[in-house]
Amino acid sequence: MAMVRRRLSPAKFILMIFFVAGAVISLFPFIWMVIGTTQNPNDVVMGKLAIGDQFMKNWEWINKTYSVLLFFWNSFKIAIVTVGLGIVINALAAFGFEKYPSKGRDRVFGILLLTLIIPQMAIVIPMFRQIASMRLLNTHTAIILPSVMSVFIIFFLRQNFKMFPTEIMEAARVDGAGETRIFFSIVVPAMKATFASASIYMFLMQWNSYLWPLMTILSDEMKTLPIAMSSIMRMYTIEYGGLMILVCISTFPILILFLAMQRQFVQGLMGSVK
């Protein structure tokens, strides 16, 4: 029969089953979190895999105790401001290091790379005292400011700037363009894909960050999505259906971003492969 011309061999058939099982395991939590938003807490825990009718009740519960949209807005605002400031500041630095070579700046860059190995946990303890003395505790500024400068992003951008031909910059200089203008109107438009990857990476890191906001945010109305989820987990009786709404709201924007921009997304996450 023409239709089954390419039959699977038994070995391939077994492999295929193995791969499909893996795919189900990978996907299941995503499906389950959506179903969970419509169920009562008991069904969520028991793992009843049917769509329930409790969505409105769960939505009301979670909004009575907390404000879901406020958490979403807090997370979004913090991530966007961090990316906006961070991309400009890190890109300027990466450009300065790469296209204006000097011994002094190379030495500075060496120090930056050296401190790259220091784990975040080791920095946040003294930084907490510092932020407290700056009277910034329980503000979004406290979350944004320390994550704007990223050595990793500077490194990633610098690697990519290596590919930008210096001759083009010299031609622009002959035409009388200033250095800042060269950067913003010639280099930036030419390297959109690189900037997209770096932005996605920074957005993801900030959207998902937990440890530092956990230390600095105290009041409910300042909380981000991860902090809100973890504080619900600490309650005595947990309304799992409502919690699942938060899990979905935290996961799906990133999922959509990933599916829409898969290439830049993966490139951003794997920036250090080179």
Partner: peptide, 8 residues
């Protein structure tokens, strides 16, 4: 799986 936040 790696697009989910560690908390989620």
């Amino acid at each position: 799986p790696c697009v989910t936040s560690l908390v989620a």
